[in-house]
Amino acid sequence: MIVVILRTLILFILVVAVMRLMGKRQIGQLQPYELAVLIMVSALAAIPMEDIGIPLINSIIPIALLLSFQILVSYSAQKSERVRAALCGRPSVVIMNGKIQEAELKNLRVNINDLLELLRIAGYPNITEVEFAVMETNGELSVISKSQHRPVKPKDMGLATSYEGLPYPLVIDGNVNYENLSKVKLDELWLKGELAGLGITSFQEVLFASLDTEGNLYYQRKDKFA
């Protein structure tokens, strides 16, 4: 059993180290150590599934340990800048003041085509519109456009706006969301009455209905009742 614990610890450190060395291009959404946990946990869970000769406890214990390590590592990363930098890496500025940082791209092993692709995905087909681009630790690209290419906001125009809030879904696929109804201080009777006024006799006829903060009821019938 002690061997299992030590092997788990060794493999955990090894996989985190390998993921860090692999660089940001392969990582995607997760932080490196999170991906390591994910890979190891799935492998630990899959192997004993096909090999009943391996006691299940030999998988449960490493998974519990990985979970514990992950919590401790996340906590350490949260508390210490150095730990965070070692485990997650640092954000890399790939475009600074509109200029591509060639050395940084080389470090990240990202080529120009990859950068242009990431910029297009971020909504910037023209690199001249970009002031800063930062490759985040999870491999995503954050783009800050040049001020003259930013969309105009009501504030820029000096326009006053009112609070919008979030619309509350009240009926989803024929099922009434009573929690949301109580949040907006309304009840089923009110909803029934409103829908009856629109020619709907049963909630089952409704595919989706929501209420916005201005009191407007949006609804859509199911195809078979339309």
């Binding site: 059993m1 002690i2 519990a64 979970l67 514990s68 919590i71 906590y75």
Partner: peptide, 22 residues
């Protein structure tokens, strides 16, 4: 709280494993 739970899991597993080995 989660940190203590995580540390607790590691300690319990390590002690159980040592006990089982002995």
């Amino acid at each position: 709280k989660m940190i203590w739970v995580a540390l607790g899991i590691i300690v319990v597993i390590s002690l159980s494993a040592t006990g089982l080995y002995i």
